[in-house]
């Protein structure tokens, strides 16, 4: 049960907040990394579409290699120490089994999350990734828990 209000984030957004608020999003092949600092009671979520920024356009958090360090920086700028931060990873579904490339995007999105979190020595304590269904998640910052529901395939496009 969420007692505070919830902020919905879209692709390319990064949001850090504190208890009792919550952060939610809906994912297909996109991935959301949720970070939580149980010492400070703050947490954050990103929502990225592709694993790597290709150098074109703006360096936005639509890309995992931009979105994850950005989220970590936002947490540390609010006083979190990386050794206290716990991570959970969601999304990266294979939304269309006929499209090999889409499958790879989901998988690459998951891989980049693991690689970057490892680089920052942040442990992944829970994960629900891959599969063929989209997900709706709500990150409860009062307890650091994530509520997850699976979507029917027709509901999600990214």
């Amino acid at each position: 049960m969420i007692h505070g209000s919830s902020t919905f984030i879209h692709v390319g957004q990064v949001h850090v907040d504190s208890a009792p608020r919550a952060i939610s999003t809906v994912l297909g092949s996109c991935v959301a990394v949720c970070l939580y600092d149980p010492y400070l009671g703050i947490g954050g979520m990103n929502h990225y579409l592709l694993p790597f920024w290709n150098g074109n356009g703006l360096q936005t958090p639509k890309y995992g290699n931009i979105a994850i360090p950005k989220l970590i920086n936002l947490m540390t700028s609010q006083g979190s120490q990386p050794k206290h931060i716990e991570a959970k990873i969601f999304g990266g579904a294979m939304m269309n089994c006929n499209e090999n490339e889409v499958m790879m995007i989901g998988r690459k999105n998951i891989l980049v999350a693991h690689d970057i979190l490892k680089e920052y020595s942040i442990s992944v304590i829970a994960e629900d990734t891959g599969g063929r269904h989209g997900r709706k998640i709500q990150f409860d910052l009062a307890h650091g828990k994530v509520l997850l529901k699976y979507a029917l395939q027709k509901n999600i496009s990214n």
């Binding site: 969420i2 939610s24 709706k136 994530v146 509520l147 997850l148 529901k149 979507a151």
Partner: peptide
């Protein structure tokens, strides 16, 4: 809806019976 752009039934479904991780 400002909290859930792209609104459809799924977005507004409650988190009752959701998995907790």
């Amino acid at each position: 809806n400002s909290d859930a752009y792209g609104s459809d039934e799924f977005l507004f479904e409650s988190f009752d019976s959701a998995i907790e991780l």
